[in-house]
Computed example of a mutant assay.
Amino acid sequence: MARRLAILATHPVQYFVPVFRGLAAKPGWRCRVFVGCLHGVESPSYDPDFGVAFAWDCDLTSGYERTALTGWPLKALSGWRGVLAGGWAALRLLLWRPDAVLIYAYSPSFIATASLLLALARVPILLRADTSDEAYSRSAIKNWLRDAVLRRYYRCCRWILPIGAESYRHFLRLGVPPARLRTVPYAVDQAVIPPWAQEEPHQPQPDRLRLGYVGKFTPVKDPLIVARALDHLSAEERDRLSFAAAGDGPLLAACRAALEPLLPQLAFHGFVNQSDLPAFYRQIDLLLLPSVQGEVWGLVVNEALSQGVRVVVSDRVSSRHDLVLSSTQGWVFPAGQSRALARAIRLALQQWPWARRAHPTPSPQQLVAAVQEVLG
């Protein structure tokens, strides 16, 4: 009889789904995904950071068994409604009688409630969570409370699958033994964003380095620092630059207004869906990700490197430990420091033009293999 693996997540996420499909295809296991809602899947959902309603244009629901536990919006999975939904989720999972449960994240309250109830029922739990000690700044009291809660929570998990080197250090610091850890960095869906093929035509413009930005125009992403950094460059250096952005949000207009006096070549494409991202990455040579907080990984770094685009990231982007290891991948600067960002762009200008080369990035199958390894 096939062993049963349940997966619990708030909603189908584009970089989770390849793992769902990979686990569903493994012989000897039956896999079923339980999601709290279908945010962004069956109908457009409003994202307050992007400032638009959208549905992902990639297939997020086929290739695996799934159960949608509520018809609620994503925000309803927090607070007291999330506690109720988490209790319902635990009951549904227990009735399905899984041999183990792979849980994505430890919040919101929907996930926390369900996972604690499953732990009380002695169901083996594998945790796959966004974890970082450097992505957010907290007071000493908040850090102490967070550590105390998470130490107890992690004891409920039989295995933990850190998302990268910085995440691994977080779990070690909170007392998780190395024997219970299997590091598997985050990966993008290579069926939607396939790696750039070396044989594809590419004609770099030796006199112009094309900067790019992908993501939400919000304060935590700090897109306005780009204009401040460019203002530190000479007019001759700026003449060798252009800028293109894929994204939307409350700071978009301010960012455009700040950049217009500095660069003659600007392109703001608004929200760009998944299937159109490879074409956008072909229009840039250097991706900027200047986040000041909350970047527990930074999947756009995976995307850019897989497309042969180098990156400049802040030291609040945790994926830098795993993916940005030399100038052939990119450069790191202290978050919020515009002069440091300007120096990184200047270093890139000094090396430009370079040969476009796709860098190996993690694959979803690595997580599938890790789950199979720990479950035996």
Rank of each mutant, 00 (worst) to 15 (best):
A55P: 11
L341R: 09
A55K: 09
R155A: 08
C31H: 02
Q203P: 05
V309R: 14
L5P: 14
S318E: 15
H11D: 01
Q274T: 09
V374I: 08
G249K: 04
L74A: 03
A197E: 12
D315T: 04
A85L: 03
W297D: 09
R346L: 08
G87E: 12
P261F: 01
E42F: 06
Q372W: 13
L367P: 02
F110G: 01
C255W: 10
F20S: 02
P201V: 08
L127C: 10
L94T: 02
T70Y: 05
S78C: 06
Q329Y: 08
L60I: 03
R356W: 10
P177Q: 12
T183D: 12
A89R: 08
A179H: 11
V311F: 11
V313D: 01
Y106A: 02
L375S: 06
L77S: 00
D133F: 12
A267P: 05
F217L: 04
A24F: 01
T361F: 03
S242M: 07
D285A: 02
W352V: 02
R210H: 14
L174D: 08
T61Y: 00
L341K: 09
A258W: 07
C37N: 13
C157N: 13
C37W: 05
E236P: 00
E65F: 08
C37F: 02
Q293N: 03
V311S: 06
Q203F: 10
I160F: 12
R210Y: 06
T61C: 07
I163A: 15
R320E: 01
F34E: 04
P178K: 03
V368F: 12
T10Y: 00
L325S: 10
L347W: 15
G22Q: 05
